[in-house]
C-alpha cells in the first residue's frame, strides 16, 4: 500500500513537470491556446461532476452557467469596472441563477430534470442573442479587457497557460476536499440510493442544491477566465451543443473521477483539432471514438488504467 502511494506521488510529480514544461517545448501559440481552452473546459467539467458525476443529477445547464460567467465579466470590464471585481460578480450571478433554476426543479428526477436544464440553457442563450445592445447579439463581444490585478496581469498565451494551470490545480484540490467531506459523502449517497441516504439522515434536497450551486460556481469562474483570457466571446461557445459536449467530456473521461474530468476535457478539446486533416470525415471518427470508449470502458478513460491492472492481477 505504501509503495503504491509512493508510485502515485512519483507519477503525479512527473505529470506536473511535463505539464509545466509544455510551453517550452511547444512554442506554437495555437497549441497553447488549445491547451488553455482545454483547461477552462476541465474546470467546467469538474463543476459538472459535482451534480452529475457524484450526486447523479443530469445537468445540461452547465454551458449556460459558463456563459453567464463569461458575459458578466465581459460586460463588467467593458463598462470600466476593475477586473478584480469580476470573479465575485460572475459568482454572484451564477449562484443567483442556480438558485432560481435549482430551488423549484431539483425535486424533479431524471428526464424531467434534464429537460428543465436544457430549457434553462436555451433561455440563457436566447437572452444573450437578443439583448444585443448589451451582449452584442450573435456577433458577440470583442476586445474584452484582460486579467489584471492592481495593474499586473499575464501577457500572452504562455503566461495565461500558467495562470490557468494554477487555477485548475486549486479547482482540483477544492474538489478533492469536498469529496472527502460530509457533503461529498452525502452527494454519493444521494446518487447511490436517495431513500437510503434520507434514512441515514442526509438532507438530499439540500445536497443536490449545493452540488448544483458549487458546479455553477466552477462554471462561472471558468467563464470569467475565458472572457478575460480569450478576450472574445460569442453565444456559440455556450450553446446547447456545448452543454452536450461538456456532458460527453464527463462521460468519456469518467463520471465521478476527478482525473477523468481533466482527461475527458483534454481529449475532447484536442482531438477534433488533431483530426482536422481528415476534413469533414473527422466528425465520423470522433463519434466512433466516443462510442468505442463508452462501450469498451464504461467507467471512462480514467478507468482504463485500473481495469488493466485488475485484468493483469486476475491473469496471474
Amino acid at each position: 500500500m505504501k509503495t503504491s502511494r509512493l508510485k502515485t506521488r512519483i507519477a503525479l510529480a512527473l505529470f506536473a513537470i511535463a505539464v509545466l514544461t509544455i510551453p517550452l517545448a511547444a512554442r506554437d501559440g495555437y497549441i497553447i491556446q488549445l491547451l488553455n481552452i482545454a483547461m477552462l473546459n476541465a474546470i467546467v467539467v469538474l463543476g459538472l461532476n459535482f451534480a452529475t458525476g457524484w450526486t447523479g443529477q443530469i445537468n445540461f445547464g452547465q454551458a449556460a452557467f459558463y456563459g453567464l460567467g463569461a458575459y458578466t465579466t465581459a460586460i463588467a470590464t467593458k463598462a470600466g469596472l476593475p477586473w478584480i471585481s469580476t470573479p465575485f460578480l460572475a459568482v454572484a450571478v451564477v449562484v443567483a441563477a442556480s438558485l432560481v433554476l435549482g430551488l423549484p426543479t431539483l425535486r424533479l428526477r431524471t428526464y424531467y430534470l434534464a429537460m428543465t436544464t436544457i430549457g434553462f440553457g436555451e433561455i440563457v442563450r436566447l437572452i444573450i442573442v437578443h439583448w444585443e445592445p448589451v451582449t452584442g447579439g450573435t456577433s458577440g463581444l470583442r476586445a474584452i479587457p484582460g486579467i489584471s490585478l492592481f495593474g499586473f496581469g499575464p501577457q500572452g498565451q504562455i503566461q495565461h497557460y500558467y495562470v490557468l494551470i494554477a487555477v485548475l490545480a486549486v479547482a482540483v484540490l477544492v474538489a478533492v476536499r469536498i469529496r472527502h467531506s460530509a457533503l461529498g459523502r452525502a452527494m454519493i449517497a444521494t446518487k447511490d440510493s436517495e431513500i437510503a441516504a434520507e434514512q441515514s439522515g442526509v438532507d438530499t434536497t439540500r445536497t443536490k442544491l449545493l452540488a448544483f450551486i458549487i458546479g455553477a460556481i466552477y462554471a462561472g469562474l471558468a467563464g470569467c477566465l475565458y472572457a478575460s483570457s480569450i478576450r472574445f466571446i460569442s453565444p456559440d461557445s455556450f450553446s446547447g451543443i456545448q452543454a452536450v459536449l461538456l456532458m460527453t467530456m464527463l462521460i468519456v473521461g469518467g463520471m465521478g473521477s476527478i482525473a477523468g474530468c481533466i482527461i475527458g476535457a483534454a481529449a475532447l478539446t484536442l482531438l477534433p483539432e488533431a483530426l482536422r486533416f481528415l476534413g469533414q470525415w473527422y466528425l465520423v471518427l470522433y463519434g466512433l471514438g466516443v462510442i468505442v470508449v463508452i462501450v469498451l470502458a464504461p467507467g471512462g478513460l480514467a478507468s482504463i488504467a485500473s481495469t488493466i491492472r485488475l485484468r493483469l492481477a486476475g491473469a496471474r
Partner: peptide
C-alpha cells in the same frame, strides 16, 4: 435499516458508516 440493504456502493465501508451520522 431498509429492505434490500441499500448500502452505498460508491462509498468505502468507512464512508458508508460515517454517512450514518449525517443527521
Amino acid at each position: 435499516c431498509p429492505e434490500g440493504r441499500r448500502i452505498f456502493p460508491g462509498l468505502t465501508v468507512r464512508e458508508n458508516l460515517i454517512t450514518g451520522t449525517a443527521s
